[in-house]
Amino acid sequence: MHIHNISKQNSILNTFISEIRNTDIQKDSMRFRRNIERIGEILGYEMSKALNYKPSTIKTPLGTCNINLPENNIVLCSILRAGVPLHNGLLNYFDTAENAFISAYRHHKNDPESFEIIVEYLACPNLDNKTLILADPMLATGQSMIATFEALKPFGTPKEIHLVSVIGAQKGINFVEKNLNSNIHLWIAAIDKELNEKGYIVPGLGDAGDLAFGEKLQH
């Protein structure tokens, strides 16, 4: 897997990452959602450099202009519900993309420190020979990403796959890398070293879905 850690170079991305982590600023759910969206835009821009382009001629009011334009047929798939703001940020840049949505959540049985990933809802177009962008803001254990990838297999075989995350744990990244083929690209805004005993990223930022849309009842 090709890992693109955008935080390795200083940029305005640092500001947005600091704000979604900050316990005072993240109390403003609207700002939290907007920051995730802006991070999605930055990751989308960086990812666009790896797409395929073809020469095109554009007619202007005063003549013609030659320019290279992307030729990828993109399907943007996000994991609900935390993935919605990230999806919107990517869609701001890939506005002609087809869209897919999937629900994946942690189901705790008797032990609060162990869980399985449950996939219930999935809406997806045909993926054959297309560019799949799979977006999940928090790449913690990596299990949600793999479960989603498996659930998408009946919809076709993408020509190329890009994973997009805001914050990931090294352990989760290693798990995804072990279970997916080497040609897949991961675009990520920050990588943290640890997971706690409940499988949350440390220092991370907390529960991205709750911060974006409010706390949920556990089941």
Rank of each mutant, 00 (worst) to 15 (best):
V84K: 09
L132R: 03
N129L: 06
L80M: 03
P85I: 13
H185W: 06
K130D: 04
T96H: 13
I118V: 15
I79F: 13
G83T: 12
I161H: 04
A140D: 05
G172V: 08
H185D: 10
L127G: 00
N179H: 15
N183V: 13
H185Y: 14
T96N: 09
D128T: 12
K159F: 12
N181T: 15
I173K: 12
E177G: 09
I133W: 08
F155E: 01
E98D: 13
L134E: 05
K159Q: 04
P112V: 14
G89K: 05
L152I: 14
A123D: 08
Y121L: 04
D128F: 07
A135I: 02
P158I: 11
Q143R: 08
T131C: 06
S144C: 09
L132M: 06
Q170E: 14
I79T: 06
A135N: 02
A169D: 05
Y93L: 14
H87M: 14
I167E: 04
P137V: 05
N99Q: 15
I167F: 07
A169C: 10
A104Q: 00
N92W: 12
H185S: 15
N126E: 08
F115A: 01
K178P: 07
E116N: 06
N174Q: 08
Q143K: 11
I188V: 05
E177Y: 11
P137I: 02
F149G: 09
I161M: 03
D136H: 10
T157M: 14
P125F: 09
K109E: 02
L163V: 00
E120I: 14
G83F: 10
F149L: 13
Q143Y: 13
